[in-house]
Simulated scan of single mutants.
Amino acid sequence: MKILLKRVYEDASPTDGYRVLVDRLWPRGISKERAALDEWDKDLAPSTDLRLWFHHDPKRWEEFSEKYLKELKENNFGPDFLERLQKQEILTLVYAAKDEKHCHPLVLKAYLESLEST
């Protein structure tokens, strides 16, 4: 499975494959129709406490990434998620963050890809 990342504010495309919103909160100003999602999986998002602590502060990015990865491994939602979607050729993780270099889907994508390779 190929895993892509895309901001929810970008237009959906047929090349996105299966689109999953991976944010805990619904993105501001986006209708369900415009989001064009196949599902919304809040369980894959960082916990509320971690999200509030990080507050998209690039100075906290490295520590946030470590804490979020720890959450993902402890919650163990990734294997079930991938198993459920195993027939999908393309999976697009959709998110709202403006900073595309310091956002949780980067960590989530790497985590899911590591599970696929095992």
Rank of each mutant, 00 (worst) to 15 (best):
S117A: 10
E89I: 05
L91C: 10
L82Q: 08
L82S: 03
K32D: 14
E66S: 14
T118S: 13
E100T: 12
S31E: 11
E89W: 03
L112F: 01
H104G: 01
V94M: 08
E62W: 09
E116F: 12
A35G: 10
K73R: 11
V22F: 05
D57V: 04
F64N: 03
N76H: 13
L50C: 04
A97T: 03
Y95M: 02
G17R: 04
I3T: 02
L4I: 05
K87I: 15
D57Y: 08
L37E: 05
S65I: 01
I30K: 13
E113C: 09
E89V: 04
T118W: 15
D43A: 13
Q88R: 12
C103Y: 05
R19E: 00
K67D: 13
E66V: 08
V22S: 11
L52K: 15
E83P: 15
A96P: 07
L52P: 13
R7K: 09
E100H: 12
W53V: 00
P14M: 03
D99A: 06
D16C: 04
R24Y: 00
I3G: 02
T118D: 10
E62L: 14
L72V: 00
R7L: 01
T118N: 14
E63Q: 10
I90N: 13
S65R: 07
L69D: 12
E63L: 08
R51Q: 01
D49K: 11
E71G: 06
S114W: 12
Y9N: 05
S47V: 00
R60F: 08
Y9H: 03
A97V: 02
W40T: 05
L85R: 12
L52T: 11
S47N: 06
R7H: 03
P14V: 02
I3Q: 04
E62S: 12
T92P: 06
L112S: 03
R7T: 02
K67E: 12
N75W: 12
F81L: 09
E10G: 07
V107T: 04
A45S: 04
D38H: 09
R60A: 03
A35C: 06
K101V: 11
K101E: 12
Y111R: 10
K59R: 09
V94P: 08
L82R: 05
T15Q: 13
